[in-house]
């Protein structure tokens, strides 16, 4: 399974980066969501996969059972998901703003800061 997941992650990254390079706001947003998922998978798989239970301490013992899932990458991913959501929301707001201000969704036509005829 872990080998399969590395391939799936590769597909996600390829699709996400292609979408982000496509040059329109909507596709950039879609790519951003996809690439967040891909990065989370990378962290998760790098922390090794086990079919064992979650890192919870049952009421009978004082420590996590031998062979439970790796807790550290999970904590990292949890944080990453929420931050990724914040980033996504901000990008969405910015895209809306840019579209209503500039009247185009083609990123390459947004050249207020770096106009074409600059010398």
């Amino acid at each position: 399974m872990d080998i399969l997941l590395t391939l799936v992650t590769g597909v996600l990254v390829a699709g996400a980066s292609y979408l982000m390079m496509a040059g329109t706001l909507v596709r950039f947003l879609l790519g951003l969501v996809l690439i967040s998922n891909a990065v989370n998978l990378i962290i998760f798989v790098s922390g090794r996969l086990t079919y064992a239970g979650p890192p919870l301490i049952d009421s009978a013992s004082k420590t996590v059972a031998e062979g439970a899932a790796n807790s550290l990458p999970q904590a990292l991913i949890l944080t990453a998901i929420v931050i990724g959501f914040g980033l996504f929301a901000f990008t969405l707001a910015l895209s809306l703003r840019a579209y209503s201000q500039l009247g185009t969704d083609a990123a390459d036509e947004m050249r207020e800061a770096e106009p074409e005829d600059r010398t």
């Binding site: 391939l7 992650t9 996600l12 390829a14 550290l72």
Partner: peptide, 29 residues
């Protein structure tokens, strides 16, 4: 995009070959 995606896959496979250090996880557990 395809080169990058393939690169990520191969890199992850390479990572899986490296022995894992679980000191931190064990400490937390």
């Amino acid at each position: 995009a395809i080169t990058l995606g393939a690169g990520v896959s191969v890199a992850m496979l390479a990572v899986l070959q490296v022995p894992m250090h679980l000191e931190l996880t064990e400490f937390f557990g």
